[in-house]
Deep mutational scan, measured.
Amino acid sequence: MATGGRRGAAAAPLLVAVAALLLGAAGHLYPGEVCPGMDIRNNLTRLHELENCSVIEGHLQILLMFKTRPEDFRDLSFPKLIMITDYLLLFRVYGLESLKDLFPNLTVIRGSRLFFNYALVIFEMVHLKELGLYNLMNITRGSVRIEKNNELCYLATIDWSRILDSVEDNYIVLNKDDNEECGDICPGTAKGKTNCPATVINGQFVERCWTHSHCQKVCPTICKSHGCTAEGLCCHSECLGNCSQPDDPTKCVACRNFYLDGRCVETCPPPYYHFQDWRCVNFSFCQDLHHKCKNSRRQGCHQYVIHNNKCIPECPSGYTMNSSNLLCTPCLGPCPKVCHLLEGEKTIDSVTSAQELRGCTVINGSLIINIRGGNNLAAELEANLGLIEEISGYLKIRRSYALVSLSFFRKLRLIRGETLEIGNYSFYALDNQNLRQLWDWSKHNLTITQGKLFFHYNPKLCLSEIHKMEEVSGTKGRQERNDIALKTNGDQASCENELLKFSYIRTSFDKI
């Protein structure tokens, strides 16, 4: 039985969820670079991206490699990797027998973001014989899940209580170790020597080791999670996991709180800001991140802002960003909400898709409305799209047979046209069989910064309504002859009103 693990408890099935942008060198404390989270699957090609990484700022997932063999891993080693800020997950990587050479110096898994409450997941690794993470000293947050690894031993010899604050939620089941077939031998045991430290858990006094050649490092209890030197002297209180010299914040392997210019500090002093819960960055760093993602459509890219001495992905609820200094300031009234469309555009074809934009005031991208039916549609669209004030790209209304009016965009005031449909149009209306009105132009103002209007096959939309939009939106004169079809717009509506004058002759039985 794995020490510190839980057996036999019912657990939810383990679901495996399925960018080499360097964020800056980590400095003297770390020998390499800070790398983003990685999802490495199918083959070993991307694994080489770990070569210079000291910190993975995010998670590391290595999974679904069915053609790899043990010899493929023999020359692979990433000794610079010290810390993973989120979680480490391995799933069905064939041929991998140990992690001792792959990650010989991995010391800390912070667990800032977890995989279903777990910071370390080893699942269905069919050839893994031992973990071998002999320098792993601290899992700051989260638990361990090690399950269905039929060859995995050296679990009962690990004292997880020396690595985690609590072992109650560890789930370590259905491994070879369960069948008591392992016969784990710690260093020196074969020669009758006791080389590794022994600890007591559940009444068992057991030597602690990761492999037959690597003991588990056990520091004096007084050192807590700070770690200790090879001689057993406690590291500085700002260290986490390990250090090369005692009581020196510049000799830590990793930091308990924050890293700044080669030393570990309790908090980031001005003019620095907390970033990702582990390091200090200056304003320029946060500003660069903001600008890199301002026009990016890459998933996970955030326009970072500053709030409460932190550089964070977005302002919290009730705050909006001051564009001059990136500071989050309290909103006066309802907060603006910028919604970034991942692929640059979004099609609204149902109430469900409209709900995804609920509360958005600025759309960074283009909207395509293609709704053919739905219950209580006008009210639903207004509830979900009615706060949109600005669209950076274009607005396209296409084959939306259920629409009679666009009044559900009740606050839309600006279409920038930074991206144009077919390279020309910022407003595009095609084949809307029941569209009769755009907006009530006596109450609604709309500016279209650039781009043209396109109207074709809107049989109940009168040309007068379209011409009014040209005047109000500032697009009059931009359109070419064929942009607004004269014969297919309003051709099934009563669009022309003329005053009919009647004269009559009164007659009676005795007068003409």
Rank of each mutant, 00 (worst) to 15 (best):
D261H: 10
C186V: 01
I312M: 13
H59N: 09
A230Q: 15
L50I: 07
G188I: 12
I158C: 01
I109D: 00
K148L: 15
L332M: 14
V206I: 10
H226M: 11
G132M: 01
G58W: 00
C228A: 01
N325L: 10
L88Q: 01
I109T: 00
L128N: 00
V253H: 14
I306P: 06
K191G: 12
G192I: 03
D184F: 13
R208V: 00
N325V: 07
I139A: 03
K148D: 02
L174F: 09
E97Y: 10
L114M: 15
H274A: 14
G241Q: 02
V206F: 15
D75C: 04
G188H: 04
K191C: 02
D247N: 05
G300K: 15
E71G: 13
D72H: 05
V167A: 09
S284P: 09
N309V: 07
Q303F: 12
P246S: 12
E207T: 15
G95I: 05
P220L: 13
Q245P: 04
E71H: 15
H59T: 13
C209Y: 00
P249L: 06
C311R: 01
F283N: 15
T140G: 07
G300D: 12
H307T: 04
E130K: 10
N202A: 04
C53M: 00
S244Y: 04
I40N: 02
N202R: 05
N322A: 14
P269L: 06
Y259D: 10
P220D: 02
D248G: 07
T157M: 04
N105W: 04
V121P: 01
L240K: 04
E147M: 05
P36M: 14
G227S: 13
N105S: 10
T211D: 07
N42T: 08
Y94I: 15
G142I: 01
R297M: 07
K292C: 06
S143C: 14
I82G: 08
A156F: 15
T107P: 00
L81P: 00
R69V: 15
H59A: 10
A190W: 12
C234K: 01
Y154I: 02
H302K: 15
I158R: 01
C280D: 00
R113F: 08
D177N: 11
C228N: 03
L128E: 00
A254S: 11
I146M: 07
R279Q: 06
Q303P: 10
G142T: 00
E49Y: 07
N322Q: 10
D169S: 12
G95S: 06
H307W: 06
R256V: 07
L88M: 05
K148C: 00
D247A: 13
I185V: 10
R74T: 08
H28R: 04
R279P: 01
V93S: 02
E238P: 01
D86S: 08
P197E: 08
T157C: 02
D165T: 04
T250H: 12
S77G: 07
A198E: 14
T267F: 15
I84A: 01
E314T: 05
P246R: 13
F258S: 07
E151Q: 14
G300C: 09
L240N: 13
C335H: 04
C328Q: 00
P269Y: 15
N325K: 07
E238C: 03
P187H: 08
S323L: 10
L50P: 01
S317N: 09
L174K: 15
G183M: 10
P246Y: 05
R110V: 07
G333F: 08
D86Y: 03
Y87G: 00
N150D: 08
T211S: 13
Q216R: 03
C219R: 01
I122N: 01
E71Q: 09
I201F: 13
H48P: 09
L44H: 05
L152W: 00
P220S: 09
M137G: 09
Y171V: 04
I109L: 07
P197K: 10
S143K: 08
